[in-house]
């Protein structure tokens, strides 16, 4: 489902990264561990098509992301990739539920309120669906963020430091939810983090 080959990236300031080849199928999860500056976020952005690699390819469901031009890549990303960010960013002016609807709309998909509600229910935050993101706790925001990543039925979910800001209890909770929900929906999950607490929670892991 997702594979990379000879992926590398050069920053204009001089930093150069070469990444190991990845190969992950649907329902699988992979933990990418690394210290600060090891290129974890760079890898995640390359996998999401947010940056162009210096060399190599990123293939999702047979489509080489690198070869897609701007708008086609945006559309492909919206339809096939879900992203969970470290600080769970949202559009602040609308509710959690509307944020989920917006994600589908931006991906060019029709509204699916039932799926949005069932995801929020699965993640235990149905009661917060009409709240503004700013009214949610950090843990609730992170769960809402997972729901948003899945509401487009993506093939791959990429999570960037999803537990760094959480205490042990919440970090374990979010990691479990992430794995269970994402793989449960048949998507592949890649988590990049420096959080060593997650090391034993994933069967497959690599260190950069």
């Amino acid at each position: 489902m997702l594979s990379t080959k000879d992926l590398s990236f050069n920053y204009p300031q001089g930093a150069t990264f070469s990444f190991p080849n990845l190969n992950i199928t649907e329902g699988q999860s992979l933990l990418v561990l690394g210290k600060s500056g090891s290129g974890k976020t760079t890898l995640l952005h390359l996998l999401a098509g947010l940056m162009n690699p210096a060399d190599g390819l990123v293939e999702i469901s047979g489509v080489n992301l690198v070869e897609l031009n701007g708008s086609k890549r945006d559309k492909f990303r919206g339809e096939n990739i879900g992203i969970v960010f470290q600080s769970a960013q949202f559009v602040r002016s609308i509710t959690v539920f509307q944020n989920l609807s917006l994600a589908r709309s931006l991906a060019g998909l029709s509204a699916n309120n039932e799926l949005a509600e069932s995801l929020l229910n699965e993640l235990g935050i149905t009661h917060r669906m009409h709240a503004k993101p700013s009214d949610l706790s950090i843990g609730e925001r992170q769960r809402a963020s997972i729901a948003r990543a899945l509401v487009t039925n993506p093939k791959v979910v990429l999570a960037d430091e999803p537990t760094s800001a959480l205490d042990d209890e919440n970090a374990a909770l979010v990691a479990n939810l992430l794995q269970r929900t994402v793989t449960g929906h048949g998507a592949a999950l890649i988590v990049v983090t420096h959080d060593q607490r997650l090391k034993n929670r994933f069967q497959n892991s690599i260190t950069l």
Binding site: A48, L50, G70, S71, D74, K75, R77, G78, E79, I83, F85, Q89, F90, V91, R92, L102, A103, L106, A107, G108, T152
Partner: peptide, 18 residues
């Protein structure tokens, strides 16, 4: 104030034109 929101929307599939 909303630069992260705009970046987020782009990551969700919004084109620059949108």
């Amino acid at each position: 104030e909303r630069k992260y929101e705009l970046a987020l929307m782009r990551s969700l599939g919004a084109s620059p034109t949108k």
